[in-house]
């Protein structure tokens, strides 16, 4: 269970040392999660930097505070949702054009690209539920805590998201 794992372990350490450990352990996982979310590697890195810097500020101001992986994902998810909403308000579509190369370099590139387009068609809340549970490995209860909702709401969104994904992927297949 991720949330039970308190990060930044030794509270006697300076905030920057604790954040350095967090970065070492979570930068890749978190960056990949956010890139899946926003479909843009550069913006994903900006968001992840902001998340770690926010963690640093938090630990500096309150060294006794517990910091969990869930907090990192929650903050990253909020940033990602905010980013996607701004894009939608400006009438921009999910990019993938510029960043598709990044996904294509992975194995089974066609499948990756199709999946990314299908994920891009989901609403932010469904996307968050699907990625937190099936991609980041959280249970519906943990995802519910991260998103501030109920486990049943997460499960319901996962069900609906899977329906949409199935349709999108089926159309592309």
């Amino acid at each position: 269970m991720h949330d039970a794992y308190v990060l930044g372990l030794d509270r006697t350490l300076d905030a920057d040392v604790r954040v350095e450990r967090l970065v070492t352990e979570y930068e890749t996982k978190l960056a990949r999660y956010v890139r899946r979310f926003v479909s843009d590697g550069d913006f994903a890195l900006d968001i992840v930097q902001d998340v770690f810097f926010a963690a640093y500020r938090m630990l500096r101001s309150d060294p006794a505070r517990e910091l969990t992986a869930g907090w990192l994902y929650k903050t990253a998810t909020n940033h990602a949702i905010s980013y996607l909403r701004k894009k939608k308000r400006r009438g921009e579509t999910v990019p993938l054009g510029d960043d598709a190369g990044a996904f294509r370099t992975d194995e089974s590139s066609a499948m990756q690209l199709d999946l990314q387009r299908a994920l891009g068609a989901l609403g932010e809340e469904q996307l968050a539920c699907v990625l937190l549970t099936t991609y980041a490995g959280y249970s519906s209860a943990e995802a519910a805590t991260i998103l501030g909702t109920s486990a049943d709401a997460v499960r319901q969104r996962v069900c609906r998201a899977m329906r949409t994904l199935r349709t999108s992927l089926g159309e592309r297949a």
């Binding site: 954040v19 350095e20 970065v23 070492t24 930068e27 890749t28 960056a31 990949r32 890139r35 899946r36 590697g41 994903a44 890195l45 992840v48 930097q49 770690f52 810097f53 640093y56 990044a102 370099t105 992975d106 194995e107 089974s108 499948m111 990756q112 999946l115 990314q116 994920l119 699907v130 990625l131 099936t134 991609y135 994904l165």
Partner: peptide, 18 residues
Amino acid sequence: IERAGAAETWRPSIGSLV
């Protein structure tokens, strides 16, 4: 989704930036 996650090779390094 799980296959896509397992196939990821992107390893960004933002530690120095942070």
